[in-house]
Design a binder for these strands. Structure first.
Length: 809
RNA sequence: GCCGGGAUGGUGGAAUUGGUAGACACGCAGCGUUCAGGGCGCUGUGCUCGUAAGGGCGUAAGGGUUCAAGUCCCUUUCCCGGCACCA
């Protein structure tokens, strides 16, 4: 193709038809298998993962595009840079959410899910232009998958990390099942917002608290968004303090141990408080008070706001371990039976809650840390110990150490670390989940289903609705429940609870790289090659649960020698939340947008670009579809310029510099997920090249560079134009990303700003790297500067090379 | 209450990490193309005074450091996210 400047005949270009272009390349890519990843022995494997969706029957909404397009841009970029990128996708199809939806529309969850998964995959995920490798799709509700979820459970069970025990659990009266602590928000069910009740039930727990310290420490080794690691840290909630034992009088127990972070305030402890939900509450109460206390406890109702005046005198007393004084024991709901030891020493002078409680019940307030006015309010600030026997005058940390040491000598206490993290309750009295693979035998007790008998198939059940009696509907299936014990062969019964859906998703990333799905949970060699995930993208709503559970399961499997890495995701970025005119998108607000119509109207390319352009990727943006027109205009421009910029002028050094600057800029921006600015630069570049092309002077090399850099963002149109401009291979061919020359990317001429007393008064065009002394001289020659100086000598002249000259008058 | 992140034109957002605030886009206005509408293209667009040249003001509010502050420090207000009786 010849392209002499002015005389170039305008080639006839057909209109950009996104429907045709996108359908064409979807078909070709699928037929050619462009995105099937060679999983064995890749030179530079890159596991690019996005959180898989749970298929609700409403389909994907606009918010899904953020992770799936955003993650794909990153993956396509790595691929163009030469990595072997594995980008799988699947479906989190089990769970209460899916089941509730099925009940609502009166269909069986299996049917609803099959339809939803098909719709998600065929009509939506395949249309958005992401290079998912569908050969490795997983679906957590398939027996071939949940068989191994059950296997994961058994590994935990065998290591003593899955136990059945009775305890206070969160019961949702609407979902009719227990919930994990992580599923309760401000005392309400996160799904249906019913007020959660406390029930005492025998349930299955995974002992994640055993890993609290490891899970906390390893956060430092991860490249994750700060906001996410902070949330995990807070959730694990490590605190350092001391356990202190008080002797008891007047009740069944001889003594009680309390946990405190302020052992330095021990002499200010004027009473003890036992949590109203303490499992052995009656042991703290004298026999004659039991009736009163139980009656009081039964009248307790959960309150939204904490009330520090509620409490009752237990009737017993405690002996202060250092002063020997007798102090009363109280019972109150503001103390949590499940944290620490379930009992505290109350120091009203230096704890706001204790102070309020003391005031309400006229208990003494004794100042033991100087610095506040404890008659007016609790003082929690720093200060030296006072009224503390031989400890007076010691400041904070020293005081804590000294008190703990004395207690230790007396055998009355020791330093201790506590965590807020609780064990993970995984039992669900529901239908739509993997049955917990356990058999209860009257002789042998709790017995694991032998691994070769997995999966324990979820029986097909007409009436799958929850019973509300604390028992799963599976309990009604007599011929499923009644089995023979694998140990003794005698009659036994199956466990009828299913496991939490978060267990399904806590290991799915291990499953993707495997091929032989029936033989193993995950292929060991593939796992060694591909794990940990190199880049994980998802919403911060899973910052605590999914990410923490996955880390826990991975760590357990690692300890068993089954996976090579202790952590599943070496890099994680939370994308921002997309809002609609300022409000978070949700069904209840009725502002959920379906991406299908946009893909139909403007195409996946324009839509992807627009979503990425809304704002910084990690902070989300406000969706207004008015702006989408800008993207359509941009793509029309690219369409035109790519086919008209055919000049072969590679010697234009300034344009060559511009091109290299663009490559560097886009490359750097994608690396940091700054998609919005990368797109802005592509637009600017496209405008310039288009103007040149309209004069017949558009360079072919500029057009080609533009297409390559645009390819991750707009995979269809760049592929079509790449073909139209005479290329045989795909624009997405691995390793094809253009390199930039750092020398050329550096500017040659620069505009230096001239300021007088910090106010801009002019500009100076110079060669890059002009020395500061020369810049100062040039600045002082400027007529405008002279005028402002009006004959005076400047007091100072500061020059920053390539940046600015400031004249101080 | 505690922890984290924010506040920049009419709007979404940029700003090389202390160095020309407002890139890019939406919207709006003018012009061109068109019978017209739409679309498309070009130009302009922080506020303000001025015909212009040019000046003044301007990054939530107030103060400070600096030759120079959207950026650093202090105080205050508001918004978003998380945790929330964790002793």
């Amino acid at each position: 193709m010849e392209a002499p400047a002015a005389a170039a005949p305008r080639p006839q270009i057909d209109d950009y038809d996104h429907v045709r272009v996108e359908a064409k390349w979807r078909r070709i890519w699928e037929q050619r298998g462009d995105y099937r990843t060679p999983l064995d022995d890749p030179e530079r494997p890159f596991y690019n993962l996005m959180m898989f969706p749970y298929p609700s029957a409403e389909g994907l909404h606009v918010g899904h595009i953020i992770p799936y397009a955003g993650g794909d841009i990153y993956g396509r970029w790595r691929r163009l840079k030469g990595d072997t990128v594995f980008e799988p996708m699947g479906f989190d199809a089990f769970g209460i959410h899916s089941e509730n939806y099925a009940m609502k529309i009166g269909e069986h969850p299996a049917v609803v899910m099959r339809r939803a998964v098909h719709n998600f995959r065929e009509n939506q995920l395949k249309r958005i232009g992401s290079m998912f490798d569908w050969d490795h799709e997983v679906n957590t509700a398939e027996p071939s998958y949940y068989r191994w979820t059950q296997w994961v459970f058994l590994q935990l069970f065998k290591r003593g990390l899955a136990v059945q025990r009775e305890g206070a659990v969160n019961w949702c009266p609407s979902c009719l099942t227990v919930l994990a602590d992580e599923q309760v928000e401000q005392g309400r069910c996160e799904r249906c917002h019913s007020v959660v009740e406390t029930r005492y039930l025998r349930q299955w727990w995974l002992l994640i608290t055993r890993y609290a310290q490891q899970l906390l420490d390893a956060l430092d080794t991860l490249d994750w968004s700060d906001s996410t690691t902070t949330m995990q840290r807070n959730w694990i909630g490590r605190s350092e303090g001391a356990l202190i034992t008080f002797d008891l009088q007047g009740c069944r127990r001889d003594n009680v141990t309390v946990y405190t972070t302020r052992p330095d305030t021990l002499f200010g402890a004027t009473f003890l408080v036992v949590g109203a939900d303490h499992p052995d509450l009656e042991d703290f109460v004298p026999r004659e008070r039991l009736g009163d206390v139980n009656a009081w406890r039964n009248r307790l109702r959960p309150t939204d706001e904490p009330d520090f005046s509620v409490g009752i005198d237990a009737g017993s007393s405690a002996v202060h371990p250092l002063s020997g004084e007798r102090i009363p024991v109280w019972i109150a709901p503001y103390v949590l039976g499940g944290y620490g030891t379930g009992a505290i020493m109350a120091v009203p002078a230096h704890d706001e809650r204790d102070w309020k409680f003391a005031r309400a019940h006229e208990l003494p307030i004794v100042e033991v840390i100087a610095g506040g006015d404890v008659a007016a309010a609790a003082y929690a600030g720093p200060g030296v110990m006072v009224n503390s026997d031989g400890f007076d005058g010691l400041p904070g940390d020293e005081g804590k150490k000294a008190v703990v040491q004395r207690l230790q000598e007396l055998g009355r206490g020791e330093a201790s670390v506590q965590y807020k993290l609780r064990d993970w309750l995984i039992s669900r009295q529901r239908y739509w989940g993997p049955p917990i693979p356990i058999i209860h035998c009257p002789d042998d007790g709790v017995v694991a289903v032998p691994e070769e008998d997995l999966p324990v198939l979820l029986p097909e059940l007409e009436d799958f609705r929850p019973t509300g009696t604390g028992v799963s509907p599976l309990a009604t299936v007599e011929d499923w429940v009644n089995v023979t014990c694998p140990e003794c062969g005698g009659p036994a019964r199956r466990e009828t609870d299913v496991s939490d859906t978060f267990l399904d998703s806590a290991w799915y990333f291990l499953r993707y790289p495997s091929t032989d799905f029936d033989a193993v949970p995950f292929d060991e060699e593939r796992t060694a090659t591909w794990l940990p995930v190199d880049m994980y993208i998802g919403g911060n709503e899973h910052a605590v649960r999914h990410l923490l559970y996955s880390r826990f399961i991975m760590r357990v499997l690692h300890d068993m020698g089954l996976v090579p890495a202790p952590e599943p995701f070496s890099r994680f970025r939370a994308h921002g939340t997309i809002v609609m005119e300022g409000a978070k998108m949700s069904k209840s607000r009725g502002n959920v947008l379906n991406p299908d119509e946009y893909i139909e109207r403007v195409g996946a390319d324009a839509f992807r670009l627009y979503m990425m352009y809304l704002g910084p990727y990690t902070s989300g943006g406000d969706f207004r579809d008015a702006g989408i027109a800008g993207m359509t205009r941009f793509l029309h421009r690219v369409w035109r310029l790519a086919q008209t910029a055919t000049a072969d002028d590679t010697h234009d050094i300034d344009r060559e510099r511009r091109r290299h600057r663009l490559i560097k800029r886009v490359d750097d921006d994608i690396a940091t997920l700054s998609y919005n600015t990368a797109i802005a630069f592509l637009m600017q570049f496209a405008r310039d090249v288009d103007h040149e092309a309209q004069r017949g002077a558009g360079r072919r090399v500029d057009a080609e560079t533009l297409l390559l850099l645009l390819a991750p963002f707009a995979p269809f149109i760049s592929e079509e134009l790449w073909e139209r401009t005479g290329h045989e291979a795909s624009v997405h061919t691995p390793g094809q990303w253009p390199a930039h020359d750092p020398e050329l990317a550096r500017a040659r001429r620069v505009t230096v700003a001239i300021t007088v007393n910090g106010k801009v008064r002019g500009q100076l065009e110079t060669d890059a790297g002009t020395p500061a002394a020369e810049l100062r001289r040039l600045a002082l020659e400027q007529p405008r500067v002279r005028e402002l100086l009006s004959g005076r000598e400047p007091r100072n002249v500061v020059a920053v090379v390539d940046r600015i000259v400031n004249v101080v008058v």
